[in-house]
Design a protein around this nucleic acid. Structure first.
Lengths: 150, 150
DNA sequence: TATTGTTATACTCTATAACTATA
DNA sequence: TATAGTTATAGAGTATAACAATA
């Protein structure tokens, strides 16, 4: 019989992604606070920036969250002046969300924040390990229908 | 001036770890449900298994959670018969938590569950990418004082 | 007086269900 | 009657604060 080697629990990818992900999100949450944003707002902004989805329902599906939660996220972003909500003329039930100039600026700020956090977060990795990690994470994200982007 | 290239927001490690981590935790949560465990219970079990900490306060610090939350997690694990709580004779304020046989069995089950999830989660990666990913994640975890273990 | 654990309480995040408007 | 979005409500997860026991 083939010896199927088992990883230690803490060495599994799902466990490590879980714990490191919690940490990463906590760091993001802190760093975003001055801008009155939470990580999920950034996720929504990134979808609008990528143009992957525009209606609230599509966004909910892409983000894996409830449509009612998208309402709350969009309410907040609209209040910050980061997005516009326009009824789709072809189907007036749909709200089409688009980034405003302010939203694009805010998104750029978030990008800088994330890059700054990254610098510290991956500090102990070699340049090779870093780019390898990014490419593997991109592959995993893409395999799960997450906007892979660049 | 040096041209500091910026990653797209969604390509940063902190962002990807956040989103993939949420997904990984959701999978773990589902898979653990039949065993009446949540991911945090597993985190606590893994610390006891590793012997990194035993008192509730040490555990709280290691896991980055509130001591009162450790109480709730330990209550549940004790109720399942997975751990023993013994007052430290040297300092009767401290509760020393130890795995029972039942706890070790349960932990082994969790290890299998995590490995099974991993198989699917990293399915689209090459063997090289997988081991590279595990080693890099271990490095990141170790740099943050998380029990790196094996 | 300081520390460990516990209890009581409250807050954040997010989902479900009921509802409105449009199709 | 079905669908997009909204509102009202509720639950899970977790922290803070007050407290008890021991040091």
């Amino acid at each position: 019989m083939a010896s199927k080697s088992e990883e230690a629990l803490t060495s599994t990818v799902v466990f490590r992604l879980g714990t490191l992900g919690t940490l990463a999100t906590a760091r993001m949450t802190e760093a975003l606070e001055p801008h009155e944003l939470k990580p999920k707002h950034v996720g929504l902004l990134s979808i609008l920036d990528a143009g992957t989805a525009a209606s609230q329902l599509e966004i909910a599906q892409l983000m894996g969250i409830a449509p009612s939660f998208v309402v709350a996220l969009a309410d907040h972003l609209a209040q910050l002046g980061a997005i516009d909500r326009v009824r789709d003329p072809a189907d007036r039930r749909r709200q089409v969300l688009t980034l405003t100039d302010r939203g694009r600026t805010l998104f750029a700020t978030c990008t800088t924040i994330a890059n700054d956090l990254d610098t510290e977060f991956v500090a102990e990795l070699t340049a090779q390990e870093r780019s390898g990690l990014r490419s593997v994470l991109r592959k995993l994200a893409a395999a799960r229908g997450m906007p892979a982007l660049e």
